[in-house]
Simulated assay, not measured.
Amino acid sequence: MKQYSLVDDIGTLHTFNKVPQRIISLVPSQTELLVDLGLESKIVGITKFCIHPKELKANKAIVGGTKKVDYNKIKALAPDIVICNKEENTLEIVENLREIVPVWVTDIITIEDNLKMINDFGILFDCVGEANQWNSNLTFALSDFKKFIESKPIRKVAYFIWKNPYMVAGSGNFIDELLQFNRFENVYDNQSRYPEIELEKINENGNLDFVFLSSEPYPFKEKDALEMQDFCGQAKIILVDGEMFSWHGSRLLKALNYFKELHQKL
């Protein structure tokens, strides 16, 4: 393959003389996508949070987490490329890794961003056919879900990601995009990213229909829902699968089926 160039999501131009063969992924959802694109054999390093597919951690080098990595271990693995994400990984990690290896950074806020990432990976890793198939399947499933959801009423929700302090999903992130896609009105979308909130003031945003407690990054449980009940008025508190709302990549296909099941339970 001749030399080729691509620009990542933060505007960095990458030029390759050959297709990267040794990949380190520092983003769990993107690790899953790489596997689904048929690239598992090329992955040499992952994070301790890369839990899908579940057998991967037994077969690949663990180079740290998403916020702290072992640079010496990464260097020793001699990667051709490291895959990062603007939200998941720190700027410090990206800048330090650039001294060692090309770093591809994604920035996924919208569903269109997600489709573009899959397309980019197809070009980047010479698996265009697999990427096109995934995007074709996703486009069909997204269209099908739009038909499913169009008759549903718009309902007000608050989506919690953390406790002590309580933090919720605001605007400008993939969670908010998927909430909107589900016709859930995020009552905190007037605040950016992941604001801290006071639970006592939750009903200042109008009458909530639902409070979603995510399974990640904080693993909310039934006891947390019971603790919050007195503050949430008539809102129904529901434990939701955080991977389905926050993992971009190929996970979106499973998420659309999960969302259908969720709506049928509401």
Rank of each mutant, 00 (worst) to 15 (best):
Glu112Asp: 15
Gln133Lys: 13
Ser136Val: 03
Leu124Thr: 00
Phe145Val: 03
Cys127Tyr: 03
Asp36Thr: 09
Ile51Pro: 03
Pro79Thr: 09
Phe145Gln: 04
Thr31Met: 11
Gly129His: 14
Phe145Trp: 02
Glu88Phe: 07
Trp104Leu: 08
Gly45Ser: 11
Glu32Met: 15
Pro79Asn: 08
Phe145Pro: 06
Lys54Thr: 13
Asp120Ala: 12
Phe16Ile: 07
Asp70Trp: 05
Cys84Glu: 03
Cys127Ser: 12
Ile23Tyr: 06
Lys57Asn: 14
Lys18Ile: 09
Ile24Cys: 00
His52Cys: 14
Gln133Thr: 11
Ile108Cys: 06
Asp120Gln: 14
Ile74Leu: 00
Ile46Ala: 04
Phe49Ile: 00
Glu112Thr: 15
Thr110Glu: 13
Lys54Met: 10
Lys116Thr: 14
Tyr71His: 13
Glu88Arg: 08
Lys116Asp: 12
Asp70Gly: 05
Asn85Gln: 07
Leu37Arg: 05
Lys73Val: 00
Ile111Tyr: 02
Gly64Ile: 00
Asn135Cys: 03
Gly122Val: 06
His14Leu: 10
Asp107Gln: 10
Gly45Ala: 07
Leu39Arg: 10
Ile123Ser: 13
Ile51Val: 15
Leu142Thr: 09
Tyr71Ser: 01
Leu124Val: 09
Ile83Cys: 02
Leu91Asp: 14
Asn17Glu: 15
Phe125Ser: 03
Leu37Asn: 08
Val105Thr: 12
Leu142Met: 11
Glu130Lys: 15
Thr47Pro: 00
Ile62Thr: 04
Met117Val: 11
Asp107Met: 08
Val19His: 04
Ile123Tyr: 12
Leu138Trp: 04
Pro53Tyr: 12
Leu56Trp: 05
Pro102Asn: 11
Val44Glu: 01
Asn17Pro: 02
Ser29Phe: 05
Gln21Ile: 06
Phe145Glu: 00
Trp104His: 05
Pro28His: 05
Ile46Val: 15
Phe125Ala: 09
Trp134Ser: 03
Thr139Pro: 01
Lys75Asn: 14
Asp144Val: 00
Asn132His: 10
Cys84Ile: 08
Pro53Gln: 14
Ser143His: 12
Thr31Lys: 08
Asp70His: 12
Leu39Met: 13
Val19Asp: 01
Val103Asn: 05
Asn132Arg: 12
Val82Phe: 06
Ile24Glu: 04
Leu91Phe: 13
Trp104Phe: 15
Glu40Leu: 11
Lys18Thr: 15
Ile62Val: 11
Asn89Ser: 07
Cys84Ala: 15
Lys60Arg: 15
Pro53Val: 06
Lys68Met: 12
Asn89Leu: 07
Ile83His: 04
Ile100Pro: 04
Ile93Cys: 11
Ile81Gly: 04
Pro28Met: 09
Lys48His: 15
Ile100Lys: 01
Glu32Lys: 12
Gly38Cys: 14
Lys146Val: 01
Asn137Met: 10
Asn17Ala: 02
Asp120Ile: 03
Gly65Thr: 07
Lys75Ala: 09
Leu138Pro: 02
Thr47Lys: 00
Val105Arg: 06
Gln30Gly: 05
Ile109Thr: 10
Val69Leu: 00
Pro53Thr: 09
Leu124Asp: 05
